[in-house]
Design a protein around this nucleic acid. Sequence first.
DNA 1: TCAATTAGTCAAAAAAAATTGACCACCGAA
DNA 2: TTCGGTGGTCAATTTTTTTTGACTAATTGA
Lengths: 101, 101
Amino acid sequence: MNNIVEDQNQCPAESLLKQLSGKWKPQIFRIAVTGPVRFNSLLRQLEGSSKQAIATALKEMEEQSLIEKTVIQLKPLHIEYTLSEKGKSLIPVFKQLEHLA
Amino acid sequence: MNNIVEDQNQCPAESLLKQLSGKWKPQIFRIAVTGPVRFNSLLRQLEGSSKQAIATALKEMEEQSLIEKTVIQLKPLHIEYTLSEKGKSLIPVFKQLEHLA
DNA sequence: TCAATTAGTCAAAAAAAATTGACCACCGAA
DNA sequence: TTCGGTGGTCAATTTTTTTTGACTAATTGA
């Protein structure tokens, strides 16, 4: 997924485009725009998805620093995923895409 | 690549994002912004690409109506690919992405 | 006539992405 | 103590995407 050395991107948009590519990432992003997001909640909202699908998407988005994972509580386990600053900076791009579509 | 029936997209940005996904499409798009583009010229510009790679990307972008194929001349064969209106409408999105990157 | 350029196609193989289904551990409520 | 919810992991398989390399066919310039 990630190329750091091999990508000497002549095309700046490309890397951001790649970070949002994948079957579930755009939908997760869109839901995350509205507020913090939880694993099992996503699983229920995204019909046709699976634990694995969600887990992979969240992990990659976290690695790309699009979202941040926060342990809210341990005792009854409660984890939240939130858009990072970088993630938030992509909101206008999404808005523009939605405007076009 | 295309889902028409199965995609009842809740996520409008998603389909446009998918149309620009693929290893070579963003780069081809970016070059096409600067003017009409030819097959072998792309092949030379995009290091690491191949005829097949370029052909597939161009074909899909044409199917998605992002670019238009025009036969300029037959006798010495000359074909050009140009951004369509839909393609041009994505330029601001690209600009925004480049601005962020 | 030979070489290069134009713009491709086709099939096979390799690599990457997505799906499927089993498994885990912990907590809380009934 | 069993059931449902929390948030995952792992391995195997399937599907999709990308790569590789051979092949085509017409035209132009030397």
